[in-house]
Amino acid sequence: MTTTKPSAPAGHNSGLAQGTLDRRAVVRAILQDRKKLLVVTGLGSASYDAMAAGDHPRTFFLWGAMGGAAMVGMGLALAQPDEHVVVITGDGEQLMGLGSLATIGAQKVKNLSVVVLNNNHYGETGMQSSHTGLGVDLVGIAAAAGFSWSARLTDMAGVEALRPRLHRADGPGFACIQIAADEPTRVLPPRDGVYLKTRFRQSLGLAPI
């Protein structure tokens, strides 16, 4: 038996090449003029990117719960059907919660979008290649799971066009944004979970218990 190094399936990787977009510029653009947007960020770089774009009570920064960001977004979106919810996370975080894409697709959660910052790598742990770097197509998975729209974005024009879409209720939507595999200086959000929870609820007019 011979073993071969894993590689992207032939003819399958045209859209999966390493991205070039600056992740900080991408997240800044997504959150620009965010209005009442409710945001959940996956642990690691996605949380740092959202913090770099500006701290906000309506951003719930995860520091753990890997694989759970999209489902936090779903529970929130069901509870707040008149608001728009965006989950911003990394490829590794979303890969750990692949089943959640099926759960969201099955329920057709209209006011929820999932945005994956795809750098094809596990940036937090030493830049090991992730499944997306080995040819796994998250856009296809989201589409097959029943998301209303699913797109791969490779340039800033696409990101600019995405922004208004996040404020519409024709979801669930999925965007995979091809970013460069670099590590900008970390901008750390608050990591006190009770504080993050309480200020988020307060921003929705919900009283403390």
């Binding site: 719930f60 694989g67 999209a70 779903m74 529970g75 979106a77 069901l78 509870a79 929870k197 609820r201």
Partner: peptide, 16 residues
């Protein structure tokens, strides 16, 4: 099952 833990947390963030 762990999806439900995350979802329940999101629900509470949104007041449900």
């Amino acid at each position: 099952e762990e999806e439900g833990i995350a979802a329940a947390s999101g629900a509470w963030l949104g007041g449900e």
